[in-house]
Amino acid sequence: MAEPPRFEELIAAGRGAVEGGELERALGLFDEALEQAHAAGRPDAADRAFCNRAAVAQELGQTGDVIPGLRRILTRNPLSETGYLAAYTLARAYDLAEDRQKANFYARIAREHATAIGHQEWMSHAHNLLGRLALSDSDFETAGREFTEALRLDPSGRPAWRAIIEDNLGYCLVVGGRLREGLTLLYRSLRGLRRSGARRYEFHPRLSLSLAQLERGDARAALRHGRAALDGAESAGDAEGVKAAYYLLGEAAKQAGDLALARAYFGQLQVRFYPDMVNLADTLLAVDAREMVNLKA
């Protein structure tokens, strides 16, 4: 039986929307694809649509229990595109549930599927995911290797995708003290996101740039990037991004010698996210926690 009419168009349009950072639109398109696949009685197509939909829903913070469904799909789709999508989305689901061991397990399966079917772009995605899991584990060396491999394998030249990897690798380099190389990658990442119109993600390299400029001792540049990161994270509704931005802005204001401003930023961090920790601003004013904190954990 042929695939339902427009099914492939809907999947392609959904992926295009993801690439452009239009996640709500992508979710709607994958929903429609899923309905079409069910209506046409095509379980294979329904599996593909389900995996794509689950991946986008995860990015939007809709963490419904998709794990049993994805496991079933992975079992009945060995070494295939759908199998890859299921393994990758399972790895992301466990990553969000902070189960790093299972996340690594499924990310490796995703890499094996991508390698077996010779899909270079997905190999790149899997390496990026393995890199991000290593980054969550504060293993910056492994993370750097995985991100380098992800960039090498990426055949697409899609600026938004490369920009996300460049931000991850740039952050690892900055934390490892390789500031010049890190800054080059982070500015390239920011340009890539602008070029592709994926403004939703711009706050990520802005945060990394704020940290990098702090490490360079350029407090004004750190403040500039920190403010842009705060605006971007607020617009994207990303609470972790907002927290990181307030923290970096406080550190940057402290480095600039403006303790009142630093107190105001740390105070915002406390009021909005840690209401019970009334002495947080005092603590962060007294202690520079940069060496302890992993902003991409």
């Binding site: 990181a244 923290y247 840690y274 603590t283 926690a289 302890m292 904190v293 992993n294 954990a297």
Partner: peptide, 12 residues
């Protein structure tokens, strides 16, 4: 290195 959340929770 820990996340900001974990560090602040630990200090609290």
């Amino acid at each position: 290195r820990v996340s900001l959340d974990v560090l602040i929770n630990l200090l609290a």
